[in-house]
């Protein structure tokens, strides 16, 4: 939009390529995360490496891109590595956290670190909500407690890393959405 020298089709090609790269990166991180031995003692407790890509996309390519890439990533990784239940958990966690992150960024203009923390927590909460329905249990107090705090910590780690990436990655990689 702001680059009149570039033709529309050129921009489209670039955007599609960028989408592909980001989705592939997210998928790769998904796979990597699945390879990490489960050193956390609770289901739903994750490092959330893919959130790095979502965070990056959100700040450098915009909200629709972040949502789209995350959705593609979830569908593909569930198809490749998990089953239907894994898809339900990922969808609930991923959609909730991405929505929260988008809202916080758009209306609150918060920093990547803060957005990532909120994303980490809401990701875990989305998964808990599905678990509650599937397992027919309301007694998830302990899980909520542990997953809230773990989401906060992992969200902070990803946020610190992501914040650096957002700042350091060269502008020409994301020409259509320069950093704010």
């Amino acid at each position: 939009m702001n680059d009149k020298k570039r033709s529309k089709s050129e921009r489209t090609i670039r955007t599609v390529a960028l989408f592909g790269i980001m989705a592939a990166l997210a998928l790769a991180l998904s796979w990597l995360e699945a390879q990490i031995p489960p050193f956390f003692a609770l289901p739903g407790m994750k490092l959330g490496l893919t959130n790095l890509v979502v965070l990056l996309t959100l700040y450098r390519m915009g909200s629709p891109a972040a949502m789209a890439i995350n959705l593609v990533r979830i569908l593909l990784s569930s198809l490749l590595f998990g089953g239907f239940m894994a898809l339900m958990y990922s969808l609930a966690g991923g959609m909730l956290s991405t929505t929260v992150m988008i809202l916080l960024k758009r209306f609150g203009k918060f920093r990547p670190l803060t957005v990532s923390i909120a994303g980490g927590i809401s990701h875990n909460i989305g998964q808990i909500a599905v678990a509650m329905i599937v397992m027919n249990t309301a007694a998830i107090g302990w899980y909520l407690c542990v997953l809230w705090l773990s989401g906060l910590v992992t969200g902070a780690l990803i946020g610190l890393l992501g914040g650096q990436l957002i700042r350091k990655l060269p502008e020409r990689l994301f020409p259509d959405h320069p950093p704010e």
């Binding site: 958990y89 599937v134 107090g141 899980y143």
Partner: peptide
């Protein structure tokens, strides 16, 4: 009370 062990794969 309220603590639980959850095995997602086996529901």
């Amino acid at each position: 009370q309220g603590q639980s062990i959850i095995c997602l794969p086996h529901q």
